[in-house]
C-alpha cells in the first residue's frame, strides 16, 4: 500500500482556507487504501531468463497481427449487409479495444513457471519487457488504439452516442497502460493476494 497516491494531501495543503488535520489525512488514506491496492509481485528477472508469456508480444510480427486484426474486424463488419458504416466502425473500434483489454489487462499470471511465480499477480501488460516503460512496443500499442479511435470517429461522422461509447472504451485501455498505474489495482480488480 502507498499513501497519498494522487498527491491529494499536498493539494489539500496548498488550497487556502483548508487546514488538514492528521485525522482527515488518515481518513483519506483509509479510503485510498481501499480504492488503490498494489500487487506484491514485482516481476524482476535476472539476466538470461525469459518470460515466455510476454516475450512474443514485442516481436514485429505480433505488431502486424494487430494491424491485420483491425482490417479483418472492419472487413467482417462491412460485409454484414444490414450494418451501416457507423455501426461497422464503432464495432471495429470496440472489438479491438476488447481484444486489447483481454490480451493485455485481463489476463493475469503466466502458464509457465517463471522465477518461482514472480509474475503470478501481474497482468500481461505489466509483464511485457519486465515492466520497462516507454519502450517501442508499449508506444506502439498505446498509439494504435488512439489512431483507430480518431479514424473510426471521423468516418462515423462524429455521431454523438457512438463517439462517447468509443471514447469510454478507449479510455479504459489507455488508463490501464499508464506507467503511474503499474502494479496498481483499482477497487481490487485483478487483485489476487492481499498480504
Amino acid at each position: 500500500m502507498f499513501s497519498d497516491p494522487l498527491g491529494l494531501r499536498t493539494i489539500a495543503c496548498l488550497v487556502p482556507g483548508i487546514t488538514v488535520k492528521t485525522t482527515d489525512v488518515n481518513v483519506l488514506e483509509f479510503i485510498f487504501e481501499r480504492v488503490f491496492q498494489r500487487t506484491t509481485s514485482s516481476g524482476e528477472l535476472g539476466e538470461g531468463t525469459i518470460n515466455m508469456n510476454s516475450s512474443w508480444i514485442t516481436s514485429r510480427g505480433s505488431w502486424i497481427i494487430h494491424l491485420a486484426l483491425i482490417v479483418l474486424f472492419r472487413f467482417i463488419y462491412s460485409i454484414i449487409p444490414w450494418f451501416s458504416t457507423i455501426s461497422a466502425w464503432t464495432l471495429t473500434n470496440l472489438s479491438y479495444c476488447l481484444f486489447q483489454y483481454i490480451l493485455f489487462h485481463a489476463t493475469i499470471g503466466t502458464p509457465f513457471e517463471v522465477n518461482q511465480g514472480e509474475f503470478n499477480d501481474l497482468t500481461t501488460w505489466e509483464q511485457i519487457e519486465i515492466g520497462e516503460q516507454f519502450t517501442p512496443t508499449k508506444k506502439f500499442f498505446f498509439v494504435l488504439p488512439i489512431c483507430l479511435f480518431l479514424v473510426s470517429t471521423h468516418y462515423c461522422n462524429y455521431d454523438v452516442p457512438t463517439f462517447f461509447v468509443n471514447l469510454i472504451a478507449l479510455l479504459v485501455i489507455l488508463i490501464a497502460k499508464l506507467p503511474a498505474l503499474h502494479r496498481v489495482r483499482f477497487f481490487g480488480i485483478n487483485m489476487r493476494h492481499f498480504d
Binding site: 516481476g43 524482476e44 515492466g131 520497462e132 516503460q133 516507454f134 508506444k139 498505446f142 488512439i146 470517429t153
Partner: peptide, 28 residues
C-alpha cells in the same frame, strides 16, 4: 462547429506526443 470534441481529439493527439516522446526507464 464542435469545439469541445475537437479539443478532446487534440488532447488525444497531445497524449500521443507526450507518450511517444518519453525516454524509456525501468520501473524497479
Amino acid at each position: 462547429n464542435d469545439p469541445f470534441r475537437t479539443f478532446l481529439e487534440a488532447c488525444l493527439v497531445f497524449f500521443i506526443i507526450w507518450y511517444v516522446s518519453r525516454q524509456k526507464y525501468r520501473m524497479n
